[in-house]
Nucleic acid binder design. Structure first.
Lengths: 343, 343
DNA sequence: AATTGAAGCTAAAAGGATTTATCAAAAATA
DNA sequence: TATTTTTGATAAATCCTTTTAGCTTCAATT
């Protein structure tokens, strides 16, 4: 088995020419390096015939570029991240890059360790949803000339590329919608206890909308351990029990909404009739659920596109000068039954 | 920026010894190669101090192993595959392997192209959900000594490792359940038009259960283009309209069920009261839906575990001889409201 | 005839590791 | 004392490319 791969050396030997010549031809430098057209054709034909492909490993070693991008997210099995993974995949392959994924679980130590292992693998770039406490590590990456793009959340202290969405504005608008179209007078905002920028921005948008009005509001932050131990539902249930005056709920992300929906159904609360609901991060099921749940959709394709555009820009050797892009994309509120006046 | 990485050469020079010695010590061969304890300690201390890590690229080139496993699935954004991705990730990293993912969309050409690109990247192994028409490509991989494990579906013609689940038995049991506990007399089986082994096995199990009884049944295969173009829901709706006598439905996979649920809700069919429902591939949402949907859960953790076990076995150099494992795991039927007698 | 220039191709270094074969000095044996 | 063994370390080949610097040969110029 395992017949050993043919190398550029074998080709040179077979044709009785030098390795250098073959390499030049392979890299399309035949003209530039004045290799005769005749020889060029002959070599190309031979390469074609035996189906030779250069070793990426050797190329990487020589060139110091591995053509690998790391996609480091909080949890690759999460629908949002998996969808982005799917979308960046094609663009990466089209540009000759491969993608290695990994999940941090939002744990700084894990993220740092992963980054360290990848660095010694000579990867070229990182697409990252940063965990807390990651500034110095990311600064190091940038310092070493690696391509970095943050997404979903970002780090205010660091000047680098990122792709995020208009969290504050969208949360503001969705809250306004709950008030104006939904007629809510007492809204609960359910979020996670964490300092992730995207969550803080959503909260900020909510507060802005609610504070300018005569609407009452309550903020509930689900404890981190509750999410980890899948007790979020119970925790949210307790919250609802002790706040039965609420006539509107804003979930800061879809997995909280899922837990919340379960809690509401257990309490026999009638969504839409008794309580309006809207969630950040649209999901297939929001359409399927009865009643359908209003939600803010992030522009996945656009995010993926911008992510790749941004990282490829940094990886592009020919391009010099400032390469950082800071992109904030608009979302789209899907108004469904859960936040409309019931008839 | 980008201060160049220190190499083993630098270490040798700094300590005034040879590269060979450093390499031996790095690889824990100091004793075997009779390097004095004194020197060994000195070198180790220095390595520790400057935080040197060997270049994986150079190692890979030299050793012909890249420590990379390809995870090639139908669609990485699919919840099932993304979950497996998440689970194998840790085990891979723990064993020094990295995982590159890619999606085939079940297209043979795409799969072949991807495999070709990865081969020239010197990856060590493949975890694959095979598309149709992939026998020869996979045989080539095996022939070249690469580690291969198929999962989800397999290729009967090829003798190699795979990890699948008891599709037929579980489908049989779930159908029996519909008949016996659900009291169904006329069951529809909704599946995709495809020859994927797992789908055929599920159908087989269904037929076996239904043919031994006096229960009527109808098979409906959603056309491939309908799924691709997101017209599955419409197509299923039509099916339901033309088969309004059905009192039970078996969905061969969860995404068909989601579409089917939408169709049923549009038809105002009361699940549980008028029609029992069960689906293959359990999903978080089945618990959340009202009524909760009965479903067959695949043992994700176990699948992931066996996948890694099986591929690591093949990658293990020390182990020789037969290395193929053919594993079939049992599923678990979660009986929920949708298939129970309504009270 | 001597010099210059271009055309066409190649030797060899570099990139960072592993490993085989070898060597010098010290210790053990005859 | 002469010979063999052991100890401790290393030079150099190898993995497969890319790329710099250089080497012929032949034609053109002075």
């Amino acid at each position: 088995m395992a017949k050993k791969k043919t190398s550029i050396k074998d080709i040179a030997k077979a044709l009785g020419i030098s390795i250098t010549t073959v390499s030049f031809i392979l890299n399309g430098k035949a003209r530039e390096k004045r290799i005769s057209e005749e020889l060029t054709k002959k070599v190309e034909a031979y390469i074609q015939q035996i189906g030779y492909k250069p070793s990426h490993l050797a190329q990487s070693l020589r060139l110091g570029k591995s053509k690998v991008i790391v996609f480091m997210v909080e949890d690759i099995s999460n629908n949002f991240f998996a969808s982005i993974a799917r979308l960046i995949e094609e663009k990466a392959y089209k540009n000759g890059y491969k993608i290695i994924y990994c999940s941090t679980d939002n744990q700084p130590e894990k993220a740092k360790e992963l980054i360290a292992t990848f660095k010694m693998r000579n990867v070229d770039g990182f697409i990252i949803t940063p965990t807390p406490d990651l500034e110095s590590t990311i600064l190091e990456l940038l310092d070493e000339g690696l391509a970095v793009v943050l997404f979903d959340r970002w780090i205010p202290e660091i000047d680098c590329s990122y792709v995020v969405v208009e969290n504050e504005i969208s949360a503001f608008e969705a809250t306004k919608h709950l008030i104006q179209q939904g007629g809510c007078k007492n809204i609960g905002f359910i979020t996670v206890e964490s300092n992730q920028t995207q969550m803080l921005e959503r909260l900020k948008g909510f507060l802005k909308a609610v504070e300018g009005s005569d609407v009452e509001h309550t903020i509930f932050k689900v404890k981190f351990h509750a999410i980890a131990e899948q007790e979020a539902s119970k925790s949210i249930l307790e919250f609802f029990k002790s706040h039965d005056k609420l006539d509107g709920i804003f979930f800061s992300t879809n997995y909280l909404a899922f837990e919340g929906l379960q809690a509401l159904s257990r309490l026999k609360k009638k969504i839409q009739k008794e309580i309006k609901v809207v969630s950040f991060d649209d999901h297939y099921f929001f359409n399927l659920y009865q009643p359908q749940i209003s939600a803010i959709e992030q522009p996945l394709e656009l995010i993926a596109e911008k992510l790749m555009e941004s990282i490829l820009l940094q990886l592009d050797e020919s391009n010099q000068g400032r390469k950082f892009q800071q992109i904030t994309l608009p979302n789209m509120l899907h108004v469904r039954q859960s936040s409309e006046i019931s008839d």
